[in-house]
Design a protein around this nucleic acid. Structure first.
Lengths: 190, 190
DNA sequence: GTCTATAGAGTGATAGAC
DNA sequence: GTCTATCACTCTATAGAC
């Protein structure tokens, strides 16, 4: 077997960047061949299901990253304050301080959501639930009742800050809002 | 000359709904002809600039609505608390309690932003500035300094709640988060 | 020979422009 | 409705590893 020019993972991350830039519907196969350097034959060899399979695998790859880097630490940590700080550090790195959008959030907004409904829903529920667990463990004021709503507002705030940063073409918006959000969550931890 | 079957404004709002559902890149002219009942010839008669012009006019229409229903009241009101309540009522009505996305936010996320950069940026800066003005007038704690950051976080929270609501297919997320946001802003008003 | 990865011409369908 | 360009995708062919 000849050496692959690109590992499967490399191909997936490059395809993800095409989706980020043009959206799912706006990403043509020729843009994908250009970004990956793979011809159509190679692409269909790796992803017989075509664009839909590429979308699904990109989402699975993102989910894998968040699962190990964000959700699991939130669920397992002894010290919620440390876990939440680590979450924001990971989020800042992943979204390049607001210069990179959330592909799952972008997929959620149009009909693309319906093709990947389970993955899109899973991404956000896992995130919110893991964060709520950490907040509740930290004993947020009337903890269990409010932790889920607070976690929801944090995840929504992150998504909105990404949207705003990109709309205004200003990463400072994201950085500023993440600063605020860190403070809000820390304040909730008694 | 036969009577138009659809006013220009009706056509624009129907085109907007197509964009909301499929995104800009994913909206085909045939989907637009179907939604408007206008043939391709009629569409190019009304919008010689094609899809780009449709996008621009849809954004202008949205901006007009927000200018009169949201921004102007925020700027002009004597009572910031009343103005902010009115803003959330308008937002809730416009976004149908989370069942409808923000098209400007959706456009912001992919390459569509670059086609309409000024409109996208204007929508959010006008919103944030108007809300910051109301918050500062209401004497938010160390008012002028923090009002803009707080306004930014409110607009980001709205955008994120819309994303989350649609991702989870649950309007309750949006309604819950708007409730929280109303309380947060009211608390900031001394 | 089989199998995997490559490339790309060629398919019908459909895109946006007019 | 007509146009051409481009779409997602198929198919054939090639290379080299076993």
């Amino acid at each position: 077997m000849p050496a692959a020019l690109l590992s499967r993972e490399d191909a997936i991350t490059r395809i993800a960047e095409v989706f980020r830039e043009h959206g799912f519907a706006g990403s043509s196969l020729s843009a994908i061949t250009e970004a990956t350097g793979l011809g159509k034959g190679s692409l269909y060899n790796h992803f017989p299901g075509g664009k839909d399979q590429m979308g699904a695998e990109v989402l699975a790859h993102i989910d894998g990253w968040f699962e190990t880097q964000v959700y699991a630490p939130l669920r397992q940590s002894d010290d919620p304050r440390v876990a939440i700080t680590a979450m924001f550090d990971a989020v800042d790195a992943y979204f390049r301080s607001g210069r990179r959008i959330c592909l799952v959030g972008a997929f959620a907004l149009d009909a693309t959501r319906d093709r990947f409904a389970a993955a899109v829903q899973g991404y956000f529920t896992h995130w919110i639930d893991a964060l709520a667990l950490a907040l509740a463990a930290g004993g947020a004021a009337d903890a269990l009742a409010h932790a889920h709503v607070l976690a929801e507002s944090a995840v929504a705030g992150i998504q909105g800050a990404l949207t705003l940063s990109r709309a205004l073409n200003d990463p400072a918006v994201f950085m500023r809002q993440m600063q605020e959000m860190r403070a809000r969550l820390n304040a909730a931890l008694a």
